[in-house]
Amino acid sequence: MRPLRVIDATLRDGEQAPGFAFALETKVRLARLLDEAGVYQIEAGVPISGLEERDCIRAVKKACASALVSTWNRARPRDIEAALACDADILHICMPVSQRQIRKKLALTPGAALARYRECASLAVAEGVAVTAGFEDASRAEPAFMLRLACELRELGITRIRISDTVGVLTPERTGTLVRLLGQAGMEMEFHAHNDLGMAEANSFCAAVAGASFVNTTLMGIGERAGNCGMLGFARLVERSGLFACAPDTARAARAECRAAPFLRRDENLFSGWSVE
């Protein structure tokens, strides 16, 4: 059986969804649950958010016996500096790769974006920390641009890329095609799904079959909009397939979600007054 590793993003992408705001003690408690469940890596937060967030990340790191702890960062030098101050095991740099994201969100040309990504990756790698790169909006990006970026990052010493279906529009077939295509860069691959069309778990499984060796989950699938790939649902699929050696298994994922459930409730009634015209 091929090894498959789970990276849990409950404390970052999950908490980022409206309605959630974990206090430090809650983050530590959830991190312990994830660590006990056997996840490979916990994405603990966004260091540039502030001192309190950085304290949370350090506390999560201290609380984990075996899970690696990573931070999520934009490709900006000050974000990287803030991340380095957290002493996390892995520094993840998010790199938007679709034309839409590069031109409209970053207001850059693709060439300038590549230069910025190279600068930030070099800055982090030079500090001796393990770095992973996240291809944001990969499902709407040009394959040639992604392949070029992947090859350049590999040259810089980065060994893993995250393929993010940022708006959750991939199908199982397109997921497999994308993972196989980026596999040509010869790097380890991670898949990050969103559930906008109800296929986060199926797509994550298909990504693993196509060659991704890391998959992102969140407890009970919490996350932006319709959420992320749920840990228990994904564990159930993987276990049933018999194709992968993967932790957590269904029983441990169920236990973790059951114990985490009281902290993952939110009151959507609070959203009702905030309509944007």
């Binding site: 980022q16 409206p18 309605g19 906008d196 909009r225 319709a226 959420g227 959507e268 959203f271 905030w274």
Partner: peptide
């Protein structure tokens, strides 16, 4: 948070 028809899927924070 139900995909497509959930009442909170277009809320952002």
């Amino acid at each position: 948070a139900k995909a497509v028809i959930g009442q909170a899927i277009f809320a952002v924070e």
